[in-house]
Nucleic acid binder design. Structure first.
Length: 591
RNA sequence: GGGGCCGUCGUUCAGCCAGGUUAGGACGCCAGAUUGUCAAUCUGGAAGUCGCGGGUUCAAAUCCCGUCGGCCCCGCCA
C-alpha cells in the first residue's frame, strides 16, 4: 500500500503518529515560507503543511504542485495552531507536517474544477466524466447506489431469494417499447434483442421451480430520453411462486422502508397508503400522484347538470364530466396570468378553461358568473374560500383528468405548494386490464399481457373487458413511478384468452411467446412479482435532479455517450460480416 | 416527428432587443511577492475565427435563413 490512512480519517487521537496519505491536490495556498496543500481522496480532505524552515528542499518541490496532481506524502500528524482550526472539516483540527513527498502523476489544467457546486455545463461533465466522478457529490451518489444494491441483496437472500442472471441477448418482442437489436453473425439476417425487462424469463424461472428469484437487472428500451429515462437502466426485479398480491406488497414495503431507514434515516409510513387506480385518477388526475401537496381535483358534475352554463351542461349530457381545482389565494391572479393558464390547459388538451374568482365578499367574479348560481356553487365546493380562484375543465373523463392532473403539478410548483421535506410513498392498485387504443382500433394491455385479472372480474372479460381490473400494483413516491408488478396469469387458457382479447392471433402468439405458452401448460405455479427502478430510487433518495447523476456513464438526450462518442460508425468489414447494409449516407469508419 | 430554452477566452457569465473604437468581468492558467491559509491575499501577464455555413449591410457576436450540439417538454416509454 502506498498509504497508511485515508484522507478523511485522521483527527486528534492520531496526533504524533507518522502517516502516509495519497490522493489528489484539491487546493494549494502558497504563503511564501509556508505552503498549504489540501489532499483529497474518496474519504475526505486533509491539510498538509510544507514549511521552508523545517525542510527547504521539500518546500521547493511543493512549490511545483498544481491542482489534481496525484501525490503521496509522509509526515507527522500535528495539532493545528490556535485560531487556525477549520471546524467545517472532520480533519480540521489536525494537519500533516510533510517529511517526504512523492509526485505520482501530474495533471494538465483541467476544463473544470472538482468542486461540489459545479459551475459548468452537464455536457462538459459528461465528456470528462472521470473528473466529474471525483466530486464528492457524485461519489456519494454512487456509494448510495452500491449501498442500496447491497442492502437489497442481503434482504432478499435472507428471504430465500435466489439471484439469477437472465440473458442479455434475447428475443425481440415487438409489443411495447422499441427494442435495441443486435445482429447475429452466425445467423445472417437474424437479430437478438436486448431485454426491455426479464419479464418472461422470470416467469419461466417460476415454472422451473426456483420459487423465489431476484436480479438487479439491466434493461434496455430504445425510446426517447427524459430527465428520469435512460436507454439502459437498472431494475430490482423479483418474482415469487405461491404468493398473493398482499405478500409481494408486504415484502416490498418492508424493503423500501429498510432502504430509506438504513441509508438516510428516513421513516416511511407503515403501512404505505393505498389508492385504487380509479381513486388516483379521480382525485389527482394521474396514476402516479404527488401527495406532498393537496390541491385535489374537485368534482362539479352534479352542479354542472343543473347549471345554466351550456359548456358544462353539454359535457355532462355527452357522457363527460366537469372537474376543477381550487387555487388558494388565486383571486389575486392577474387577467394575464389566467390567460396563460388557459393557454397551458389548451396545450394539455383541453378545449378551454372556465374560471371563477371568489372575491373577499364571497361573490363570484368571472365572465361566466351570470350563468352560475353563487349559493349553489359555494355549496358544491364547500372547501373553496373567499380569495380563491376556481378553474374548471368540462370534457370526457380522460381529458379532464389529464389536463387537471398536469395543471395541478404545474401550480404545485409555481405556488410552491410542494413540501420538499415530505416523503409520500403510495401504492396504486386495481389497474384496468385494458385500454382502448383509437389508433390501432383494439384493446391494449395497460400493464402487460401477462397480468392476471381480478378473480371476480373474470366474467367481465367476455361482457365488458374495459371494466375488468387486474391484480397489478404500482409503487409511487413523490409523484414518480418507482416500480410496478402484478400477479401473473398462470393458466394457459387464461393467457390465450387475453392474447385473444388483445387481437394477437394464435399463430402470432405461438411465434412470439410459444415457449411461455408451452411452459404454462407444463405445470405453472401461481406466481407474481415486481420490478423497482433502481436509478429513480437513487435519484429520490439522493435528492438529485436527474437520473443521470445516479448512473456513472449516462447517455445524453440524443442517446449518446459524450465521453466515448458511442454510438459510432463501424468498419465496412464489420457490417459485411454481419450481412448488414445501412441506408444512411453517413460514411462508415475507416478500419 | 413536434414545441421551448441555450451556445461568446480553459470555465462561467455580460454585451445582442436598438449593428459602428483595441469584445468585458469573475474563476482558472502563467510570472512575481508573501510564514497560518482553508473561496488565501497582493501585483503583473497571456488567453476568444463570438458553435458552424450562408445572407442582408459601407459595417454583423448583434438582424435574417439554414445547420450542428446540449438541456427541458409533448408524442413515445406493453
Amino acid at each position: 500500500m502506498i498509504r497508511s490512512h485515508s484522507c478523511g480519517e485522521l483527527s486528534l487521537p492520531q496526533v504524533g503518529q507518522t502517516v502516509t496519505l495519497a490522493g489528489w491536490v484539491a487546493s494549494r495556498r502558497d504563503h511564501g515560507g509556508v505552503i498549504f496543500i489540501d489532499i483529497r481522496d474518496r474519504y475526505g480532505l486533509t491539510q498538509i503543511v510544507f514549511d521552508s524552515e523545517e525542510n527547504a528542499p521539500l518546500h521547493a518541490v511543493a512549490d511545483r504542485l498544481r491542482n489534481e496532481y496525484v501525490i503521496s506524502i509522509t509526515g507527522k500528524v500535528s495539532v493545528r495552531p490556535d485560531e487556525s482550526e477549520n471546524l467545517h472539516l472532520p480533519t480540521g483540527r489536525i494537519e500533516i507536517r510533510a517529511q517526504t513527498l512523492e509526485l505520482l502523476n501530474e495533471a494538465k489544467p483541467l476544463p473544470f474544477s472538482v468542486e461540489d457546486d459545479v459551475h459548468t455545463s452537464e455536457s462538459l461533465r459528461l465528456e470528462h466524466r472521470y473528473l466529474d466522478l471525483r466530486r464528492p457529490k457524485m461519489q456519494q451518489l454512487l456509494q448510495l447506489r452500491s449501498q442500496v444494491s447491497h442492502l437489497t441483496r442481503q434482504y432478499l437472500h435472507e428471504k430465500q431469494f435466489i439471484e439469477v442472471e437472465t440473458p442479455i441477448l434475447t428475443k425481440s418482442t415487438p409489443e411495447g417499447a422499441r427494442d435495441y437489436l443486435v445482429p447475429s453473425r452466425v445467423n445472417p439476417g437474424d437479430f437478438f434483442a436486448l431485454p426491455q425487462s426479464p419479464q418472461l424469463f422470470k416467469q419461466i424461472l417460476m415454472i422451473g421451480g426456483l420459487d423465489r428469484y431476484f436480479q438487479i437487472a439491466r434493461c434496455f428500451r430504445d425510446e426517447d430520453l427524459r430527465l428520469d429515462r435512460q436507454p439502459e437502466f437498472t431494475q430490482i426485479d423479483l418474482e415469487m411462486s405461491f404468493v398473493e398480491r398482499e405478500d409481494i406488497m408486504q415484502l416490498i414495503e418492508d424493503l423500501i422502508r429498510l432502504l430509506f431507514k438504513d441509508t438516510k434515516h428516513i421513516d416511511l409510513p407503515n403501512p404505505i397508503p393505498r389508492l385504487t387506480y380509479e381513486e388516483a385518477m379521480s382525485r389527482y388526475g394521474t396514476d402516479k400522484p404527488d401527495q406532498r401537496f393537496e390541491l385535489l381535483l374537485q368534482d362539479l358534475s352534479e352542479f354542472a347538470k343543473t347549471c345554466d352554463f351550456q359548456v358544462f351542461r353539454r359535457a355532462i349530457e355527452s357522457g363527460g364530466m366537469v372537474k376543477g381545482l381550487i387555487i388558494p389565494k388565486g383571486a389575486a391572479f392577474t387577467r394575464n396570468r389566467i390567460d396563460n393558464l388557459i393557454e397551458t390547459a389548451k396545450e394539455f388538451g383541453a378545449k378551454g378553461l372556465a374560471w371563477v374568482k371568489i372575491n373577499d365578499e364571497g361573490q363570484l367574479d368571472s365572465s361566466i358568473a351570470k350563468f352560475l348560481n353563487t349559493a349553489a356553487l359555494r355549496e358544491a365546493l364547500p372547501s373553496a374560500n373567499p380569495g380563491d380562484l376556481l378553474v374548471f375543465v368540462a370534457d370526457q373523463a380522460t381529458t379532464v383528468h389529464q389536463v387537471l392532473g398536469r395543471l395541478r403539478l404545474l401550480l404545485g410548483e409555481e405556488l410552491q405548494l410542494v413540501d420538499r421535506t415530505r416523503w409520500e410513498p403510495l401504492w396504486v392498485t386495481d389497474f384496468p386490464m385494458f385500454e382502448y387504443d383509437e389508433a390501432s382500433q383494439r384493446h391494449v394491455a395497460l400493464h402487460h399481457p401477462f397480468t392476471a385479472p381480478h378473480p371476480e372480474d373474470i366474467p367481465l372479460l367476455d361482457s365488458a373487458p374495459l371494466e375488468a381490473k387486474t391484480l397489478a400494483y404500482d409503487l409511487v413516491l413523490n409523484g414518480f413511478e418507482l416500480g410496478g408488478g402484478s400477479i401473473r396469469i398462470h393458466s394457459p387458457n387464461m393467457q390465450e384468452k387475453v392474447f385473444d382479447l388483445l387481437k394477437i392471433s394464435k399463430e402470432e402468439a405461438r411465434e412470439k411467446f410459444g415457449f411461455l405458452l408451452d411452459a404454462l401448460e407444463s405445470g405453472a405455479p401461481p406466481h407474481g412479482g415486481i420490478a423497482l427502478g433502481l436509478d429513480r430510487l437513487i435519484m429520490l433518495l439522493g435528492q438529485t435532479e436527474s437520473i443521470r447523476d445516479t448512473i456513472p456513464f449516462p447517455k445524453t438526450q440524443k442517446a449518446q455517450c459524450l465521453m466515448t462518442h458511442a454510438p459510432s460508425s463501424v468498419a465496412p468489414e464489420q457490417l459485411q460480416e454481419l450481412s448488414i447494409r445501412t441506408t444512411t449516407k453517413k460514411p462508415t469508419a475507416d478500419s
